[in-house]
Design a protein around this nucleic acid. Structure first.
Lengths: 251, 251
DNA sequence: CGGCGGGTTGATTGCCGTCAAGGCATGTGG
DNA sequence: CCACATGCCTTGACGGCAATCAACCCGCCG
């Protein structure tokens, strides 16, 4: 699960090799999906810049004015809300090829904070310029709608998770979800690194850090997975999937 | 909160009085928001029909092919997901001026069931025809994006609710949310009817019907509200809002 | 060395789910 | 009219799951 492609260190590379959607390994998952060469070029021309965000750095903060969407190129992010009482809730973890900032369109201000979980890189997509493209690129528009819609359905399944599932089931669903997203990106579905802390996982799943720790130990004892620090290996994806689907009796 | 306008009974009225966005009382909340006369006309021309859905009737079901979005004209709906284990989770309650079906764009199939909570009426919006309009009506497109984005932020606040709040806070947030939506529609923010059963409320909030009942009794004792069956009156909206925001110590 | 952040594990508490009984309104049939 | 059933809701008693509180481990770093 370590990234094979361009290394992160010298920022000079980013400007030297003019990064483009056409050559990006994520272009079949990301915004340009399904576009022809011409259209990809047009999209490339509006992409502002590739922006690096260091680990724990903010990509944007709540109430920041909305100017760009961001496509994750490299790395992982988390987004979270904070309510008036100061409690925070992580609303999602984003990885390469996924879009950030769609929740800001409605009010022209960001509704959440976005923080990099590791040294990461995003493509800045100036939204007004993207809108200009929509008129002449129906395929792009269509795919953009799909991505927004997908975000809606994703959140609905989190609602199902938070509203109906017990701790064990939530955690299984979380692992299975990560596995499926990694496999879609060409990585192993059974062996990967947790980019987020136990605390982040717990917050996302509506549980405490202690519960996450206990669940990891329990699953380990049951032979469902191996875990060492943040390195994880899923040994019985079938059972985990059954647990996530709610078709497995909680042992 | 009873609807003043056209009665529901004889379906002939629907076709006789050619309903239109221009004359609809919801057009400042709904899809045509901000459109000029010409554009509203164009939008009107693609609206398929006004469809009635009786109480407890399905507007659409999970896995139905996606052809239309629906704008609620009259009445209330609930949408819910069902997982493989058969457990269901209500993902939202929709009222006049709100859009249903956006979660289906990503896969061309509906991801949830939508059921009318009372005799209701919707406008069918054939999505392919709506897409045709987008090219020439940037204002419409913009507003459509705002509505999708709003749905994303709405779901994020539900995630905050389900992930972080205690029962009392959840229920207060629920009531305050209803109040604000009714006031935006010109109704009283303090006195309205719950269109959904206690069971539906509990399911939506990740609680049991018994908890909802107890919370209603508790709030009644505290003088926060009056309730009789489904008729409700909020007596202390300030405190309820503070509870919802998490700035009130749970008494 | 000591402090610190992140993680694990154990003991205890408490919120809310579960189970159970009953209230109340409505409908149906005798 | 009553008897009875049904759906929706309320209230109480009890118990379980996960939160809370606390101690400790481990690796890292100044």
């Amino acid at each position: 699960m370590t990234n094979p492609s361009p290394d992160l260190s010298p920022s000079i590379i980013v400007s030297a090799v003019r990064a483009s959607c056409a050559t990006c390994s994520m272009h079949q998952l990301c915004l340009p999906m399904g576009l022809g060469e011409n259209d990809i070029d047009k999209l490339d021309q509006i992409i502002g810049r590739r922006r690096k965000v260091p680990r724990d750095g903010y990509l944007y903060r709540m109430d920041d004015p909305f100017t760009n969407l961001y496509a994750v190129r490299i790395g992982h992010f988390k987004t979270y809300q904070v309510n008036a009482g100061g409690e925070q809730q992580i609303t999602g973890f984003q990885m390469a090829g996924e879009l950030l900032g769609m929740d800001a369109i409605s009010t022209d201000r960001h509704h959440c904070d976005a923080i990099a979980l590791e040294d990461s890189e995003v493509c800045e997509i100036p939204f007004p310029r993207l809108e200009e493209l929509f008129g002449s690129m129906p395929i792009l528009l269509r795919h953009f709608h799909r991505m927004m819609s997908q975000e809606i359905t994703r959140e609905q399944s989190v609602m199902l998770l938070l509203g109906n599932m017990r701790a064990e089931q939530r955690f299984a669903a979380f692992l299975v979800n990560l596995a499926s997203r990694y496999v879609a990106r060409g990585y192993s579905s059974t062996s990967f690194q947790l980019r987020m802390s136990r605390e982040d996982i717990g917050n996302y799943l509506g549980l405490t850090i202690e519960s996450i720790s206990r669940l990891l130990s329990k699953f380990k004892k049951q032979g469902l997975l191996k875990v060492s620090n943040r390195e994880i290996e899923l040994l019985d994806l079938v059972t985990l999937k059954a647990m996530a689907a709610g078709t497995e009796t909680c042992s």
